[in-house]
Design a binder for these strands. Structure first.
Lengths: 206, 206, 206, 206
DNA sequence: AATGAATGAGTCTTCATTCAT
DNA sequence: CATGAATGAAGACTCATTCAT
């Protein structure tokens, strides 16, 4: 018994269950995952799940928060002390790609079907989203201050578009996962975002 | 008359049910909508639903296809005989916005979570998506030929980004529906797409 | 239309339906046959079935009677004017075998699952059975009178056993249909019935 | 005690359900018995039935096997170490009769109509039947070796007929249950089987 | 007479949750 | 704390029967 428990901390069981839940919710729909299944994978009794989580919905929410965390962190750590908007965006973008490659699964959960009935979760997502938008919009403003971004740009739209860009990459790789985006091509996306696709004087000059 | 009506009647019942289904599926999860509920809304017997649709899954698929149709048409009608890529994109973009305003609901279904278990549906969506990507990529190529778009752009990425742009608008308006995008601001998005956000010489010249 | 109807009599529809029903009930359980199925095979509308038969149960009963008829006839025609019990039994036995070979299907219905709820049918079967038993018992009595059958035999048991013999052949061939009984071997059965299996003086004498 | 009881308890619930199922299936058709009904009779929740049996079909099969067991045992225990075929057959026959009187109900299930759709069950029955036939055929062969049975008899047919004899008794008593066979008369059947009904020299000598 | 669209009662089965041990 | 046997509400689906045309 001691051996079996080696390395396991207090609060261990809760985590076992949470991990099992995440694994299952990544694999299948909320509705297609059964509590029994999770309990089995976590190697605990079905009743034990209810010792730590009040319901299947709660368990899903916690799983979702758990998976969302690293994703949100990625952005947040870049919203402070910017020396260059362009560079920061590139960093976010590249790390984003790396994160996806590493955690393809974890992210999947974020975009899987989730029960609309979990109103609390929906609100949470909206709030986080507002935070993100606020963050990237701030980034754009900073870029304008720094003279990197043209001052007539609609800062909020620009921010939202940057998010959309990032999420597009997720869409391609995680949801549809039928494409293996190379870093090069992904950077092209950012280039388009920065320079536009239009053939202006700038390019004519070449 | 009898003959003409018989056909209509049949179509009517089927449509009644389909409309009811769409309405319900817009309101709730696939799994949270019951066939009984749909039958009641359609004001037909439960068994009648099964006269026209072989299963709940089929009913959902048909609902989805029904809602997807106008959306897909929007793009497809613009993929032929282009005189200007910029103008075409603007047209698509504006009509897209109009469509959203008119059919907020129908579109909602397209972007709602859908059960991954409906594998056939997933494939259908992927295929349609590939078509769309092909279409917009073609549009970009055309733009290059016409000298509107810079030739060094990654055409596929540019195409995908255009799609992402459009879908972003949906995301903002339909899914989150917490914002009432004005046409002006939406056009700003397209401007960013075309000219980029970067402060290049072009802007410095002003 | 005239061509399609050629050879069809009045009362035709009823027979079409009955034949279709028999065919279906031979193929599958009462409960696994649907009225729709029968109507389709009979090439009539579902409602038409109910014009001629008041219910599915009634339709089954009629099908059963129809199939039972030829079987019962076989015996009945031999219960009159007997010159030799042994010979009559052989005749019945051989014809029985022939009937089975010809109508394997029709007989199948008689032994297929039938809804116990059809009390009326159960009674009918019991009555017919009593008739048969009466008949064969009479045959045995006749045999005794004619000096062919030993007078100390329990006539009713002997009669019932003769029936069992016949039904065994059906059991082997129709229900289990995993054996192709040759006429020779079947006659051996009758021989056993007539002479017993015991090694009595009779045989010792050889 | 706890351990011993736990096992018993589990067995008990399963048996409760099985007994209830047998009772119901004896009473009515497979298709006319509902799982709810069985659960009620067993005094357990509907869901509990599915804890112990994966489906209604499975429950029926188990009920059938349960009922078939004692019947099959009866024969099997007599297929070893025979000193007299005649005596063994009599023993089987008499015990068969006793078994019927005791377990009229359980046996009923065996000879009730059963849904042909339960293919697995049909196979099982055929296999058991082959075993029985093999057994009784062996018995006949033994009888020939022992000089009790005439050597020119078709052993398989003789075996099958012996089975038919036994089943006839069931048929008369259990299925039709309109007759209360006395042991005497039943033995007469065996006598016919052994000595035949024919009036040979043997009898003329009396 | 003939039809077949419409119906809804009735079934099996699943699974989140509870609670006695 | 931990368990898992027991539960029953809920839902998809079938099909005999009816009835308007």
């Amino acid at each position: 018994m001691a051996v079996a428990n080696r390395g396991k901390e207090v609060g261990n069981k809760r985590e076992q269950i949470l991990h099992a839940a995440v694994e299952k919710f990544l694999e299948k729909d909320y509705y297609q995952v059964t509590v029994t299944e999770i309990a089995e994978l976590a190697e605990v009794g079905k009743g034990t799940v209810y010792e730590y989580f009040s319901s299947k919905e709660e368990l899903f929410k916690e799983s979702f928060y758990y998976c969302a965390d690293s994703y949100l962190q990625l952005f947040k750590t870049h919203f402070v002390e910017i020396s260059s908007a362009r560079q920061t965006m590139e960093e976010i973008f590249v790390k984003h790609l790396a994160l996806i490659k590493e955690n393809r699964n974890k992210l999947h959960l974020l975009f899987n079907e989730r029960p609309q009935s979990l109103q609390e979760l929906q609100s949470w997502i909206l709030e986080r989203r507002q935070e993100l938008i606020g963050g990237v919009t701030g980034l754009v403003k900073e870029g304008i201050k720094l003279g990197e971004i043209r001052p007539d740009v609609d800062v909020e739209m620009a921010g939202r578009l940057f998010l959309a860009l990032n999420q597009m990459v997720i869409g391609e790789m995680v949801i549809l996962d039928n494409i293996e985006l190379e870093e090069e091509r992904v950077k092209d996306l950012l280039d388009i975002y920065w320079n536009g696709i239009g053939y202006s004087r700038r390019w004519q000059g070449h």
